[in-house]
Design a protein around this nucleic acid. Structure first.
Lengths: 191, 191
DNA sequence: TATAAGTTAGAACGATTGGTCAAATGACAA
DNA sequence: TTGTCATTTGACCAATCGTTCTAACTTATA
């Protein structure tokens, strides 16, 4: 039979993800993707079949490799409030080598409004972040470390909103003076 | 001598603004703009001279006609905390006929990262919203209707962050269940 | 060694992109 | 009426877009 693929699909998706993350969907041409991934047009079209499909693949790659993995890491923290804070601090810190902000948030504004399937992906991804917050809040509530009367489901949505705002702000200017006050506000909500 | 222009520049900018707002910078072609504005290629290029310049014009149009005018309207409210709330409620309500979200926020993610001049415009615009919040907070503080110990400059930045998050969320889904909790959180911050 | 699957390189496709230009048009002064 | 000139018009341009394709090449199995 034939031969193994020379490339490694996750690596290709990772390269494509970075390109889309940096320049957006429309701002990234297939020529850019050829250069970014290192494999050529034909192979790209053979492996994924569209620019759009490749984008969806890159989005899913981002979601599972970065978001899911990172949140699972946070779930192992003993202190649920610290886990929430860690998520926000991670935005401030940024992963080096990676563009600022968040590919899913970028997608929310650029492509989701015009592509229902991608809108679903984006919504699902953001929903799971909200669920993560909710889990943490429930755990904190159970151990009595939350302000009495705090409505956890609403608070999870508020945290989600603040996270999105923070991601947009840090994409524009990573060291914005707004970052610290926002983190402080999250601390106060959880206090 | 010759003759008056048949079109009205603000109207053209308004039409272009809506197109850019709806489909983004890259997602809007000159052909789209020709259709949206009603005047033809040559006139468009004569009046503004680039796609990019037209975009900047549309951004400035948005900023002065919508953002500045709206904030000035809010400044006339007697109650400064009510003015802040009104800004948030306006996002929830939405201007009908206009796309959801905010052109400046869209621009923050799509074009500002790759265009320093536009990044400045965006930053200036958002800075003035923050200043609006700060003014309101100062007025509220002066009349003693603010929680003691609230740090107004930080709070203005927090409100800005929440506003941005809200704008992204409402762009994705105008009637998101996250909207009400976020508004409630703003109320509690101001309480 | 023949065959099959996959990679590679690049030419080529029609469509669309942002941008230009010469000619037609219209309002005013003379 | 005529001359003038800014404005309008739509054809036109080269470049790029996403996509397809062919043909040569590489490796592993039958």
């Amino acid at each position: 039979m034939p031969w193994k693929k020379k490339y490694h699909k996750p690596d290709v998706l990772d390269a494509a993800m970075r390109a889309f993350w940096e320049h957006g969907y429309q701002g990234t041409s297939m020529a850019n993707l050829v250069e970014a991934t290192g494999l050529n047009r034909g192979s790209l079209y053979a492996a994924f079949k569209d620019k759009r499909s490749l984008y969806i693949g890159a989005l899913e790659h981002y979601d599972t490799v970065y978001r899911v993995a990172f949140l699972n890491q946070l779930r192992e923290l003993a202190d649920p409030k610290a886990a929430i804070m860690a998520a926000f601090v991670a935005v401030e810190t940024g992963n080096d080598g990676l563009p600022g902000g968040c590919l899913v948030v970028n997608s929310t504004l650029e492509v989701a409004p015009h592509d229902p399937e991608i809108a679903e992906l984006v919504e699902a991804s953001m929903g799971q972040v909200e669920t993560f917050f909710l889990e943490c809040l429930h755990r904190a509530e159970a151990q009595g470390s939350l302000a009495p009367g705090l409505r956890v489901t609403d608070t999870a949505k508020v945290l989600m909103g603040m996270m999105v705002g923070l991601l947009v702000i840090t994409r524009a200017s990573p060291h914005s003076p707004a970052v610290a006050p926002i983190l402080q506000q999250v601390r106060e909500i959880l206090a």
